[in-house]
């Protein structure tokens, strides 16, 4: 098969970021979103924390990789086993759902880190002042964090109960806690990353206000 030149500039799907301003797709720029993880460290504490987060992130990404590829391989092998070996794997439904819930909740947590939760909204079009946009986004982040804490509380309560009672799955006889732990990890990630996002936005607001004040003083 010949290797033909593709017609358009090519961007890796793996690196495409949703909700960041993209001149290819959008004509009018909106104030860029702040992510949970700042681009550079401002303090020494920051850089230690960021290094710690990098380690966590590596762990999360490895788990996502395993779960994602694992699910595809598992479902594929079910077809093979049915036709070639004629011996089905009893636990297929349980095992595939185990991988799926980890995909769902790691994905939710990671989407929070990358600020990729699906959202609507018209703030940046109605409000032109970037400081006010910042205030509204700060309120949004703090609301999400509080909500994530409340949802996370109920999620943990349920998951811990399952762990506590030592319930086993029907076919594989694995502890049900393996499934529900995905929820604990997912909500912990969401709370953590919303917290970081809130801090980031708070700092941005403080910086903007200081900059404005000094600008006003300079004008006086």
């Amino acid at each position: 098969m010949q290797q033909e030149k593709l017609s358009a500039p090519y961007k890796s799907v793996g690196e495409a970021k949703i909700y960041d301003y993209d001149p290819d797709l959008s004509a009018h720029p909106i104030p860029p979103h702040l992510h949970a993880i700042p681009n550079q460290a401002n303090h020494k504490v920051d850089s230690v924390l960021m290094r710690f987060e990098r380690l966590l992130n590596w762990t999360f990404r490895s788990m996502m990789l395993l779960a994602g590829l694992g699910l595809a391989v598992l479902m594929f092998s079910q077809v093979i086993m049915r036709y070639v070996l004629e011996s089905p794997f009893t636990g297929i439904e349980e095992a595939s759902i185990l991988l799926a819930v980890w995909i769902y909740f790691l994905g939710m947590g990671y989407a929070t880190r990358e600020r990729e939760h699906i959202h609507g909204g018209i703030v940046s079009l109605i409000v032109k002042d970037p400081y006010k946009v910042g205030v509204i986004r700060f309120i949004g982040s703090i609301t999400c964090m509080i909500a994530a804490i409340i949802f996370g509380y109920f999620a943990c309560k349920y998951a811990l109960k399952e762990l506590d009672r030592g319930r086993l799955s029907v076919n594989l006889r694995w502890p049900r806690g393996l499934w529900s732990a995905s929820m604990i990890v997912g909500f912990a990630m969401m709370v953590g990353y919303f917290l970081l996002e809130t801090i980031n936005e708070f700092r941005y607001l403080r910086r903007t206000r200081r900059a404005r004040q000094s600008q006003q003083q300079a004008e006086v």
Partner: peptide, 21 residues
């Protein structure tokens, strides 16, 4: 149905059991 006894039963009957939701 995806339960252990379901597979056991139809294997004993000589079928190829396929657990499926």
């Amino acid at each position: 149905p995806p339960i252990p006894i379901g597979i056991e039963r139809f294997k004993s009957f000589g079928f190829t059991p396929v657990p499926m939701p």
